[in-house]
């Protein structure tokens, strides 16, 4: 038996790495005015982000390249390789919430420099939150690296099945557009194999 479990945390608790933020901005390092801007953006995103995740444990049944994962069947060599030897896996969806999208949209209209820094800060935050979720999932067990749909040959169309399976729309407000884009924008779904 597995539950659809829920994780949330206060965004302020997520410690963001400035180097990562600079990397998303395609920069090696930052100086004066830019550091100030990044600091301001970190505070602003932390003030409105609402990190939430849902996850469930599923059994992994592999037949050649076809994997049966609880939410549906997936044909993906890369994912099969990633999950090789795993009897079970976690499926999760993590998001920072719609207010982050609204904030970035707002600044992209009035101050694009701030918008792209906010965007990079939010990217760093969702990654950090995924790590946070990973740490909780990985307590007392060893996990494989996260694998998301859209990576390699893992078809992005499985996004719909994953979100339905986790009831992500109702529980954490994650919607899928016709173009398979998720909103809120800072949302990640992933499969994490549990190593035996």
């Amino acid at each position: 038996m597995s539950e659809i479990s829920f994780i949330n945390t206060n965004a302020i608790e997520l410690k963001l790495n400035d180097k990562e933020i600079c990397r998303y901005l395609n920069m090696r390092a930052c100086d004066g005015a830019l550091c100030e801007l990044i600091d301001g953006c970190k505070k602003e995103v932390a003030g409105i982000a609402s990190p939430k995740a849902v996850f469930a444990k599923v059994s992994v049944k592999a037949l050649n390249e076809k994997l049966s994962l609880g939410f549906g069947d997936v044909c993906s060599k890369k994912l099969a390789k990633n999950l090789c030897g795993c009897g079970e896996a976690f499926v999760f969806c993590a998001t920072l919430g719609q207010e982050v999208d609204r904030l970035i949209n707002k600044y992209s209209k009035i101050e694009p420099s701030r918008a792209i820094v906010l965007d990079s800060v939010a990217t760093a935050m969702i990654e950090e939150f995924c790590d946070y979720v990973n740490d909780i999932l990985g307590e007392n067990r060893s996990l494989r690296p996260r694998f998301s749909c859209g990576y390699g040959d893992f078809d992005i169309k499985h996004q719909a099945e994953i979100l339905d399976f986790l009831d992500a729309k109702k529980r954490i407000g994650v919607y899928l557009l016709d173009s398979y884009m998720m909103t809120p924008f800072k949302t990640v779904t992933a499969i994490v194999g549990i190593a035996k």
Partner: peptide, 10 residues
């Protein structure tokens, strides 16, 4: 189909 326009705004 695309609703994220930060790049365009830049």
């Amino acid at each position: 189909g695309d609703i994220h326009d930060i790049g365009k705004n830049i």
